[in-house]
Design a binder for these strands. Structure first.
Length: 617
DNA sequence: GCCGTTTTCGGCCCGACTGTTTTCAGTCG
């Protein structure tokens, strides 16, 4: 296109992390000491979740300090950032067939087995492995048998059926059902969710459940006998693992009565978080496992009774740590924060007083305006802002100013009714103490040409405006950023909805200059949205954390397109908690009166905030 | 490969389950 040679685009954090991940895998396949592969994977995790654009930092010559990245991996990051390549990775690829790496995804196949079949049978891909299993070649390898062949074929079949990770709402529904089903096992006291679901990650791989029970074997039997179990991966005395027909793997751990504390810690924290906790236990002379704490000096083999705890809080206290919320247990600074007494007091669903973003049948929603309002009222909200799309978003049948005026009349009539009913004490069950009002807003399109889709005098008629960008997503970074910053600068725009424009597992974040966006949002007091739709969860947890650190306000919204989706706010709260958010950063924790005053006062807001608001943490 | 006011070298988290070479290595979470 252009005549001038341009530097290659800087690799994203995701691309850098993928390369480190691949180096880790290939080193493992080569049989390197396990700590090297661990180091590369740990670095990959840190890079993937870093809030700064790492390649940009390296290109500009300053090497950011990243936890778990030492001299060797820092050099690798520098090389990739400037050249877009990594010589070490290319050498490894020459040495180890890339297809061999795919084998690691098969359940039951690890690096040793992959290398073994490669060396003995020349297997270099999943297809090769399938053929070797089908023709009975596997059993000719010392250490492998006909049974191994069957398990390999089952593993490959399961891999093909597997449809990626679960969205949070799907995982939640499944977990709720499993808790009921497994709770019916003889001896069951209670069933608890653990793992990445309990940490409320954006997507969920396997489901981990704990069952406190007097009869562990009955619990495992109950799991194996569930109606939609397709295959049993493991079924022991204390643990079971199955794959459901949907392809989802469910792991069940049994817990002796009264010992849940260390079990919950063990099966909730990320691997890295757990390693850190065990390191701390070790420093203090104890070995920590799910079973409890055992003194390090207890002779190996001697059956030292582990020290157990009923609750997680007690088990944390044994290490002189306060309770760390599940969403924080990722080894992203939470242990240091706990030690220094600066863990955040995370926002909760009950802190939210209303919802700033929803749609009706007037644009791309399903339900009538009144139904949306009534549903929010019954959820105890003090307010709901109706934010249908503006004209230029044709696919959503966006509204023109005349139609918005018609909506306003409907909103006003509904509110008159709410006022009258509240005065008469005639309110539906679930209503909140402050009554309910439907507020009128819009989801203002930030057009491809950079203009806002409604004139200032129309925007001034709304109670609150959320702005977002749906078209022209592929424009260059400078242009995209300019469009969003322009919207942020409008005296009428209160919230930027789904700022990254991503869709989970479908579409990456917009290529924005995030530091510039945070700065503009913080300076003008424009809130950034945490969109709770399970398809979006936008912003991501790491961007949320960076935004709050930069002094930004947030809005946690459902973006509901039908009444039941008002509950998506819950997922937004989970996401915000993963971003270390406290209630003081969230505008829809404000009362209705304060929210309206906040929205009306945008032009003065920056000045006010500068003088009264406390620092980002 | 990373890391350290107890270490610049020598550590690095821990247990269950499976299959097989039957005493333990490999895999997994």
């Amino acid at each position: 296109m252009t005549a001038n040679p341009r530097p290659s685009p800087a690799p994203t954090n995701g691309q850098l992390a993928a390369a480190l991940e691949e180096v880790g895998d290939l080193l493992e396949l080569r049989g390197e000491v396990v700590y090297k592969t661990v180091a590369y994977r740990r670095a990959a995790e840190a890079v993937a979740h870093s809030p700064i654009a790492i390649a940009d930092a390296y290109r500009s010559g300053d090497r950011p300090r990243i936890e778990g990245v030492g001299q060797t991996i820092a050099d690798a990051l520098a090389e990739m950032s400037t050249t877009g390549r990594l010589e070490r990775l290319e050498r490894l690829r020459d040495e180890i067939p890339p297809g061999l790496r795919d084998l690691l995804a098969i359940s039951g196949i690890g690096p040793k087995t992959a290398r073994l079949v490669h060396e003995e049978l020349g297997v270099a891909s999943i297809d090769d492995l399938r053929r070797a299993a089908e023709t009975g070649a596997i059993r000719s390898v010392r250490g492998l048998s006909e049974r191994t062949e069957r398990s390999i074929l089952a593993g490959i079949a399961a891999l093909a059926r597997r449809t990626g990770r679960l969205k949070v709402d799907v995982a939640e529904a499944l977990v709720e059902r499993l808790i009921v089903d497994l709770g019916a096992a003889p001896g069951a006291i209670r069933v608890m969710a653990a793992g990445s679901f309990r940490r409320h990650r954006e997507t969920i791989g396997d489901l981990d459940l704990l069952i406190e029970t007097t009869d562990p074997q009955a619990a495992v039997r109950c799991l194996v006998d569930l109606p939609d179990v397709e295959s049993v991966i493991a079924a022991g005395e204390r643990r079971g693992s199955v794959r459901l027909a949907s392809g989802v793997q469910v792991d069940l751990m049994t817990v002796p009565p009264g010992c849940a504390g260390t079990y919950l810690i063990h099966f909730t924290g990320s691997t890295e978080h757990n390693v850190r906790l065990r390191g701390r236990a070790r420093d203090r002379g104890w070995s920590l496992s799910e079973l409890g704490y055992v003194p390090l000096d207890a002779a190996k083999g001697s059956a030292a009774e582990p020290l157990t705890f009923v609750t997680e809080a007690e088990a944390f206290r044994f290490l002189d740590l306060p309770s760390i919320e599940p969403e924080l247990r990722e080894d992203r600074g939470e242990i240091e924060a706990a030690l220094e007494g600066r863990l955040p007091h995370l926002v909760e669903l009950a802190d939210l007083r209303g919802d700033l973003h929803c749609h009706s049948e007037w644009t791309d929603g399903i339900d009538p305006i009144e139904a949306m309002a009534e549903a929010a009222r019954r959820r105890g909200h003090s307010y709901l802002v109706l934010t249908d799309h503006t004209l230029s978003l044709g696919v959503a049948r966006g509204l023109d100013p005349a139609r918005f005026a018609e909506q306003r009349a409907i909103v006003d009539r509904l509110n008159e009714r709410f006022v009258a009913e509240e005065a008469a004490g005639n309110v539906p069950p679930g209503s909140g103490p402050d009554g309910f009002r439907l507020l009128h807003g819009c989801e203002l399109e930030i057009r491809g040409d950079g203009e806002l889709d409604l004139a200032d005098e129309v925007l001034a008629t709304f109670d609150l405006v959320v702005a977002s960008l749906h078209v022209g997503r592929r424009q260059p970074r400078a242009r995209l950023t300019e469009r969003v910053v322009t919207a942020i600068g409008s005296p009428h725009v209160d919230v930027i909805a789904h700022p990254a424009g991503r869709k989970i597992d479908q579409r990456d974040d917009l290529d924005l200059d995030w530091d510039r966006l945070y700065e503009a949002a913080a300076r003008t007091g424009t809130a950034l949205e945490v969109n709770g739709s399970p398809d979006r969860l936008d912003l991501s947890d790491e961007r949320i954390r960076a935004a709050v650190a930069a002094g930004c306000l947030l809005a946690i919204d459902s973006d509901a397109h039908r009444t039941v989706e008002l509950d998506y706010q819950r997922h937004g709260v989970w996401q915000a908690r993963r971003g270390w958010v406290e209630r003081g950063s969230v505008v829809n924790t404000l009362s209705r009166e304060d929210l309206l005053a906040w929205a009306a006062g945008k032009p003065d807001r920056a000045a006010r905030m500068g003088s009264t608001r406390e620092g980002g943490r």
